[in-house]
Amino acid sequence: MTVTLDGLPAGATVTTSGQAATRPRRRLDIGLLAAGAYLTVLLVAVLWPAALAPGDPLAADPRNVLSAPDSGHWFGTDNLGRDVWTRVVHGAGHSITIAVAATAIAVGGGVLLGLLAGLTHRVADETLSRTLDALSAFPTLLLAMLFIAIVGPGTVSLIIAIGLVTLPRHARVVRGLTQLVRRCGYVEQAVTFGLSRPRLVLRHILPNAIGPIPVLAVIGLGEAVLIAAGLSFLGMGPQPPSPEWGAMLSEGRNYLHVAWWMTILPGLAVTATVVSLTVLGRHWQRRLDGRQR
């Protein structure tokens, strides 16, 4: 008897877990709202940092070094007496620019290579696909480091390095979809109507092959922020005194025992950015999935 009682609610799970896919949407709305709010503030910080922090991110105050968060400096000050809040706000521009530029390279290059691989015939496709496979075989961080070792550290090499290492996944998605789309009836029909090849690709294949790319790009943006923070933490990105987040974390690490706010608070900005982008991306993906079903 206990067995049946045990089994019943568990049996009910089977049916409710199917609904669970749609139900969390209502719950996640709070999360989505918070993510949207944070990203709005972030956008303001990127476009007009003075609105949130009118001070100079590089202004040192030797009489007020390593002071804990209070009403005057509500993120505290660093080892040179610079206001950490001002630096975090102004650093958003650096960090987000790097991530956006890197993602643009990854998406642009990925779409181009994916289309190329998907449209060409066996040998070229095989070569491209294997090269992409090989690129994915390197751990992301190490591949980016190889690139930076060759061209030297700095903002531009950081952007290109992150763009290159995150490119293969976009290329792979586009390649797969291109191969599907080019076998579709409407494409074959367009071919029989004698549509020129460039127009065929631009008008019919491309729009249908890049469906999931915007969502991937939003989630990839978060990952780019993470990789950028890691690499510049290691000193491979923008150099001090630039208030880029990873560089701030790297500087703060040496003062962790006396001033946790120098590290943890800029770090939370990174985490909040990545969480918000991921929440946004997943929500968007779920909506797309819902529409396709």
Partner: peptide, 9 residues
């Protein structure tokens, strides 16, 4: 979503 080194710090 947190950089691993931040968790460490």
């Amino acid at each position: 979503s947190t950089p691993p080194f931040l968790i460490g710090l």
